[in-house]
Design a binder for these strands. Structure first.
Length: 482
RNA sequence: UACUUCGUAGCUCAUUUGGUAGAGCAAUAGAUUAUUAUUCUAUGGGUAGCAGGUUCAAUUCCUGCCGAGAUCACCA
């Protein structure tokens, strides 16, 4: 049996005249003669020229859209315009027929919503195969970035016992049957009898455990699944998503911002360098889509142009207090265009963030030093600044055009007394998080870190409008299909 | 979470004062065959998301439910 050659290898070799075997799926069958064969190894297809006069009728009939075939033949220079070489097939074998009458996909434009319902087939399309190749590239680049800089990849738990993380609604993990859970004397569910001997949930963040790693190994990062049981039906939320959380000893908020900016730029550069064909396709796809849109709704730059721009220019860095001042001086504010109020102490709403990123600075913006009252207990308290109405914490958000908050992070409160005070004020149990406090009691150190939403980064790099289309099997409220 | 729009053939859509539905592509059959979404001819295909209501009559109007999109809240 002839060894199979991957199409990526074929396209990259100088092998005219060689006889090879390729295996893959039919992307197009033109003129009963030309098969565009695709095997996933490369964005591009290999043209297989079928000798239809000497190929059995039965075989010819089964060369349908997305049928799987093996083709053996000689590589020759192509006579057609779209490619330099092609395979003159001497033998075609049907490995898996694809009855077009019953098959869900068709060789034409299908909507993202439709394809989402066909998640077992959608990765076969140009768009999704490009997205998932790039997603892989980004995941690899994450590990490469940190490994090259001496970070250690730490696996933090998926099942957590502490309910003090406070990052929103959590999914409960239990082996109890619904309605059959044992009760304590006062009628509460008795989690002491549950599998772990306590109430447990799926993680919403590996940060607290990440701090343990940072204060032992110096520099760590996590990269794993994260779960939020929020009823969020938007194009940038998932119930199950992947997050990268570096945590670094001796870093302050400014080191943290430098790391975040370097990291983002590295990921973008990596994809620009290694996935030009996939990016070019996605770029064209967006341009085609926007042709029919009014000018003001189109993106100011093409996809690749945007990526280059972000990778080559410094992010804007401002404080929350400056952001509020800027917003108050903005046209939309003066014209009463903002739906939500702009006032020191109020949350920045996405309409405000979008103004800063897309209108004012026209590039990624890092906002830092947020009011303490709305932020998590572990963020480091800043000194009272002159001219600033209230206390702030050393928190930072990295805001990207189109997707909003890509990164959220902070310098952590390393001062035991300050931390304890904050925990009490925010009703976080010191007893439950005794270990977190002991990190400050014994060999504590200043440290900082952040969380980057992996799918949001994939969204930004691929230009996909909906986050459900950059993860293979999206989990959202009401949907856990596949 | 709130508001809003939408759900018609396998897919993308049309069907404007309420009178049981059309096109393009796809499919099937045939012809053609050095193409890059091949070309030509013919054919089949719909309980209009689901459940109620108003009406002589509902794809069209009303209510509820389900799903989706856009905006938005929480956040990554």
């Amino acid at each position: 049996m002839q060894r199979r050659t991957e199409i990526r290898e074929v396209l990259g070799m100088e092998a005219l005249g060689q006889t090879i075997t390729v295996k893959g799926w039919v992307r197009a069958f033109r003129s009963n003669r030309f098969v565009a064969l695709y095997d996933g190894s490369d964005f591009n297809t290999l043209q297989v020229v079928v000798d239809f006069e000497n190929t059995p009728e039965e075989t010819l009939k089964q060369i349908d859209f997305h049928a799987c075939i093996a083709a053996t033949g000689r590589l020759v220079e192509s006579q057609g315009a779209g490619q330099t070489m092609e395979l003159l097939a001497e033998n075609i074998e049907i490995l898996g027929a694809a009855n077009p009458e019953a098959y869900s996909l068709q060789p034409k434009r299908m909507t993202m919503e439709y394809l989402r319902e066909k998640a077992h087939f959608r990765m076969r399309t140009n768009t999704f195969s490009a997205v998932f190749r790039i997603r892989h590239g980004l995941a690899y680049a994450v590990h490469k970035f940190y490994n090259d800089r001496g970070y250690y990849y730490l696996h933090t738990p998926i099942v957590t016992g502490s309910d003090a993380e406070g990052a929103g609604e959590m999914f409960r993990v239990t082996t109890f049957e619904p309605n059959k859970a044992p009760l304590t004397e006062d009628g509460q569910v008795d989690f002491k009898q549950d599998f772990f001997g306590k109430a447990t949930n799926l993680t919403v963040s590996g940060q607290l455990q990440g701090e343990i790693g940072a204060l032992a190994l110096g520099k760590i990062y996590t990269f794993g699944p994260t779960f939020r049981a929020e009823n969020s039906n938007t194009s940038r939320h998932l119930a199950e998503f992947w997050m990268i959380e570096p945590e670094v000893a001796f870093y302050d908020i400014h080191d943290n911002m430098d790391l975040a900016e370097d990291f983002c730029k590295y990921l973008i550069d990596y994809v620009l360098l290694h996935y030009p064909d996939d990016l070019a396709f996605l770029d064209k796809r967006i341009a085609d889509m926007e042709k029919n849109m009014p000018k003001e709704k189109r993106r100011p730059m093409g996809l690749i142009e945007t990526l280059r721009f972000v990778a080559e220019n410094d992010f804007e860095r401002i404080t929350y207090t400056e952001a509020v001042r800027t917003l108050k001086n903005s046209k939309p504010y003066k014209k009463g265009k903002f739906e939500y109020p702009v006032e020191w102490g109020e949350e920045l709403q996405s309409e405000h963030e979008r103004y800063l990123v897309e209108k004012k600075y026209k590039k990624p913006v890092i906002v830092r030093d947020y009011p303490a009252k709305a932020k998590a207990f572990y963020m480091r308290m800043n000194d009272q600044e002159e001219g600033v109405p209230g206390r702030t914490v050393a928190a930072m958000d990295v805001l990207f055009p189109g997707i909003g908050e890509l990164i959220g992070g902070s310098q952590r409160e390393e001062r035991l007394e300050v931390l304890q005070e904050r925990m009490d004020a925010m009703h976080v149990s010191q007893e439950e998080l005794y270990w977190y406090l002991e990190l400050r009691k014994f060999g504590g150190a200043p440290h900082a870190g952040f969380g980057l939403g992996f799918e949001r980064m994939v969204q930004f790099v691929t230009g996909m409008g909906n986050i459900r289309d950059v993860i293979a099997f999206p989990r959202t409220p009401g949907n856990a299909e596949f």
